[in-house]
C-alpha cells in the first residue's frame, strides 16, 4: 500500500459522515431530547458575552499589563544576577597535592511529561538525591563545547549530531538527536589529547526512562583500537560485547549524570547505548567533557 493510497483511505474513513440537511439534524437532536446534565452549558453564554464586552477588554488589558509588570521584576533580578561576575569555584586540597576546584553545573529546567513506564532493568539504582557538582584539579575546563561529533549512524532520525556539544540541555523536543534502534554510539573528537576528569551526559530527559547498556570509553586513537579506557559501563549482561559492567542503570532527569574519569589521557570519547526502557531508540541531548 503506497503512502498516497493509505492517505486516501484515511481521508475516506476518518472524517465523520455528513450531517445532512436541517431535517436530518433536527431528527438527530430529537434523538437526544433530554440534557444529560441540566447544568451543562451554563456559563458558556456568560463567557461569550464577557469576551466581547469592551469594558471587559479594557479590564483584560489592565490585567495583562499588571501581570507583565509583576513578571518584569523577577526577570530584571535574574538579568542583573547574570551580569554579575561568575561564581568562583570553591578550592579544596586533593590527596595528591593538586588544588581541587568545585564546579557547579548549569542545569536545564525539569520537563518530565507523561506517565512513567515500568523499568525492567535489574541494575537500576534506587532513587537518590541528584549530584549537582563535581571537583577537579585547578585548570580543568569544559573542552567539548562545539567539538566534532560522529556516530555509528551518519543520518540521525531527528536532530543533528552537532546538538550533542552545542551547550543546549533542555528536555524539550527540539534539542536532542535521535539515533536508530539498537546498539548505537556517538564519538566526540576533542581536537587534541587532554587529561579528562569528568564527563557529564544528558540523554533525552523529558519522559522518565533509563537507557540500556550505557558504556563510555576514552581513547587517544580514533578507532579505539589502542589505549582504550572504559570509564562507565552499566551493560550488566555484556549484551554489547564490550565487557560486562557494574555501574548502575539510572533514570534520566534534567540533572543528567556526572561521571568521574580521573584524568584519563585521551582525545576521543565514545558513548554507547542500546535503546531505553521507553523504546528502542537512542537519544543524546548534551555531553560535556571537562579536562585540561
Amino acid at each position: 500500500m503506497t503512502d498516497q493510497n493509505l492517505e486516501r483511505l484515511l481521508r475516506e474513513t476518518l472524517p465523520p459522515p455528513p450531517l445532512g440537511d436541517d431535517g436530518a439534524i433536527e431528527a438527530l437532536l430529537e434523538s437526544h431530547p433530554e440534557p444529560a446534565s441540566p447544568s451543562y452549558g451554563q456559563g458558556m453564554l456568560a463567557r461569550a458575552q464577557h469576551r466581547q464586552d469592551p469594558a471587559n477588554s479594557l479590564k483584560q488589558l489592565l490585567f495583562v499589563a499588571a501581570i507583565l509588570v509583576l513578571l518584569a521584576i523577577p526577570i530584571a533580578i535574574v538579568s542583573i544576577a547574570k551580569l554579575a561576575p561568575e561564581r568562583e569555584p570553591t578550592a579544596q586540597s586533593g590527596p595528591d597535592g593538586d588544588v581541587l576546584v568545585e564546579f557547579a553545573l548549569d542545569y536545564p529546567e525539569p520537563t518530565f511529561f507523561g506517565t512513567p513506564l515500568d523499568m525492567d532493568l535489574p541494575n537500576l539504582e534506587p532513587a537518590r538525591s541528584p549530584r549537582l557538582s563535581f571537583t577537579a584539579p585547578e585548570g580543568v575546563r569544559l573542552i567539548s563545547h562545539q567539538a566534532k561529533v560522529t556516530s555509528s549512524e551518519a543520518k540521525p532520525f531527528i536532530g543533528g549530531l552537532a546538538m550533542v556539544t552545542d551547550g543546549q540541555k533542555l528536555g524539550d523536543d527540539t534539542h536532542f538527536v535521535e539515533l536508530p534502534p539498537g546498539h548505537q554510539w556517538i564519538q566526540i573528537d576533542l581536537g587534541q589529547r587532554y587529561s579528562i576528569y569528568t564527563i557529564n551526559i544528558w540523554h533525552y530527559h523529558k519522559i522518565k526512562r533509563a537507557y540500556r547498556d550505557v558504556v563510555i570509553e576514552c581513547s587517544p586513537d580514533e578507532s579505539f583500537s589502542s589505549g582504550r579506557v572504559v570509564v562507565f559501563n552499566n551493560d550488566h549482561d555484556n549484551s554489547l560485547g564490550l565487557g560486562a559492567g557494574e555501574d548502575p542503570a539510572y533514570i534520566e532527569t534534567n540533572h543528567g549524570r556526572i561521571i568521574d574519569v580521573g584524568g584519563v589521557d585521551a582525545r576521543y570519547v565514545r558513548l554507547h547505548s542500546n535503546g531505553s526502557t521507553a523504546d528502542e531508540l537512542n537519544h543524546y541531548t548534551e555531553v560535556e567533557v571537562y579536562g585540561r
Binding site: P16, L29, Y40, L45
Partner: peptide
C-alpha cells in the same frame, strides 16, 4: 441574547452527545 441562551440551555448537552461519537479517536 435570550434566544442564544435558550439554544445553549436546551441543546448544548445534545450537541455534545452528537459530537462525541462523531469524533471518537
Amino acid at each position: 441574547e435570550q434566544q442564544l441562551e435558550q439554544i445553549i440551555r436546551e441543546h448544548a448537552s445534545a450537541v455534545r452527545d452528537i459530537l462525541i461519537p462523531r469524533y471518537r479517536g
